[in-house]
Nucleic acid binder design. Structure first.
Lengths: 343, 343
DNA sequence: GTGAAAGCGCTAACAC
DNA sequence: GTGTTAGCGCTTTCAC
């Protein structure tokens, strides 16, 4: 068994409480005893038992991270390691640890969250997704447990701290870009229409199309499962229409990859025949053929801010709800092309 | 404050110890009191405090997962969410939680691992990478702390439980496949040569080449940073050689994506001019152009097995060290092509 | 079958 | 400045 605070106390000839104060670097302890105690700790290879500490102070110095259910194929998106990296970086700085939930289905996740909350495993929770009428979200609200959402809450927007991009605006920009370079028939390919991120991106697209007075047949809006099957499906649907689109607003780079692929299969070329605009600026956006015009949403920073907000909130229950909008930037690459007026 | 075991005891008119026994579903408690106690728990919305429990039993029901440092660009690889998913799935079944370390650099990680171990935060640790003379690995050995490696330990192979693929053999197969379809000039593109996975894959390649009596100039072996810059660099190097290769064994699908891309940029086509074989069978291997011939290493299963082994080990310190080899399967797709004998 | 009581390792009043 | 002591919420002997 590892040595305890008592062992250290005995060895240094002080009381346990003094050792505790040295650990906390309490200013009322004289430098000489501090030194003595520290030496004893070194010699004994002492490390505080976090469980005991947590029990005593009723906090854990840990934050829970909840990913979408792995049923959700979204999990294969490099988005997640990248947010995790952001969260982890801030957490590390502040000496918090990360507790990750990766349940199989929604029920698993709900259970895990319950365990985290009721079992006092974490001081707060970051949700890595936001969908409408999500039971986890509701549960956390009811429990008044500190949490923040990456993305936009579907309701109670002003009571829930969240960090997000201006997806509406970004989408507007992308769509307008397509319009600016002459596209008239622009379609939207999104993920599940239950995710707020899809909803916002769709809204921005809609707005731009309407402002420009362009046609907006409902068939131009497709919600598909992520990637592979999704990309295929979307392209099949869209390009069997009477007036297939020449411009595409796609809600994720990974989907775009699938789209490019399927286009090629049916004999269409990007950007010659179809221009693609996309979201997320995953590293792979630069190495597709052609490289994607996409919105850099600063995934890493989303994570950093979320962690910061959560920790603030966990340390001070009265911290007001905030909204942090991480700025985005459209990266113009080669997947978009001015429409050929001679065609 | 949430209700405690005492509250429940009072409400049910029993002693705290009885409640405790009910939680553990102790067989010596009469069914009637069990029912009474359970009812009280429900009514009070009672959930055991995990910290207190952990403190009392000196265990945590949590396992630590250590990713490579995020300095390592490997982190952007979809490999990680996928293993996490596997680990998470098994962990969930057995009611373990996941504790994830995502340090910025190697020192951060080392610190976090120390905290995990000494602070009693986790019952065991899974390392998601293996490199030669890794300080974390050493540390865990010295502390005799339960851990398992996904990959192959660089030393003490027989004392460290690990789950791995037969990377040597898989690489041999890939290389032989290229040889079988007529390639004579085959190069290897790997990641850092400090990672055991790279080493094994290189070895398999070497073996196949030598067995076939083919040329193996040292310039045919390149170690590059992951992806983008890496892929570019590798291709640039290899295809400015006097005898550029016609076949490639690439240690990761993500790298392959970069390679295909750069090839195109310099006017070469895969598979017409260059055949590519690759590793991991990431979902994106199916949607590149062309789809990749790659080794399916069953990432998810790697995670599941690792979790299982770790939990066994954590529950029984005498559990012997094991090696689990997860079977692989080469997926033949369109990135490889018989060499044209007329050329 | 159930209760009383000690203790897991730490912190935080409250003393002095 | 430092020591004493009473918990934090749970498990686990040892009684009965």
């Amino acid at each position: 068994m590892a040595s305890t605070i008592k062992d250290v106390a005995k060895k240094a000839g002080v009381a346990p409480s003094t050792v505790s104060r040295v650990i906390a670097d309490n200013s009322r302890i004289s430098l000489s005893t501090k030194k003595r105690v520290r030496k004893a700790m070194k010699q004994l290879g002492y490390h505080p038992n976090i469980n005991a500490r947590n029990l005593a102070v009723r906090s854990t110095q840990a934050i829970g991270v909840v990913m979408p259910s792995s049923a959700d194929t979204a999990l294969q998106n490099p988005f997640f390691p990248e947010v995790l990296r952001g969260i982890g970086s801030f957490a590390h700085e502040t000496e918090y640890s990360l507790y990750v939930s990766t349940g199989g289905d929604d029920d698993d996740i709900f259970e895990e969250v319950q365990r985290m909350v009721h079992g006092n495993r974490v001081d707060g929770i970051i949700l890595l997704y936001s969908r409408i009428s999500d039971s986890v979200q509701q549960f956390l609200m009811e429990e008044e447990f500190p949490f923040v959402i990456i993305g936009k809450p579907s309701e109670q927007e002003n009571e829930i701290t969240h960090v997000d991009n201006d997806n509406y605006k970004a989408s507007l920009e992308l769509t307008n870009h397509l319009i600016d370079i002459g596209h008239q028939n622009i379609a939207f390919i999104g993920g599940s229409d239950e995710l707020t991120v899809t909803i916002d991106r769709l809204q921005g697209y809609r707005q731009a199309i309407q402002e420009a007075g362009l046609p907006l047949p409902e068939e131009y809006i497709v919600h598909v499962e992520f990637l592979k099957s999704g990309g295929r499906e979307a392209v099949e649907q869209l390009f069997s229409l009477q007036t297939p689109p020449t411009g595409l607003v796609v809600a994720d780079d990974l989907m775009s990859l699938g789209v490019i692929n399927m286009l090629e299969e049916i004999g269409l070329n990007c950007p010659e025949d179809v221009s693609i605009t996309s979201f997320n600026n995953l590293y792979l956006a630069e190495i597709t053929t052609p490289p994607l015009t996409t919105v850099d949403i600063q995934i890493y920073m989303l994570g950093v801010h979320a962690a910061r907000c959560l920790i603030e909130k966990a340390q001070n229950k009265d911290e007001p709800a905030k909204r942090i909008i991480v700025p985005h930037e459209v990266k113009y690459r080669q997947s978009t092309k001015e429409i050929d007026p001679t065609k």
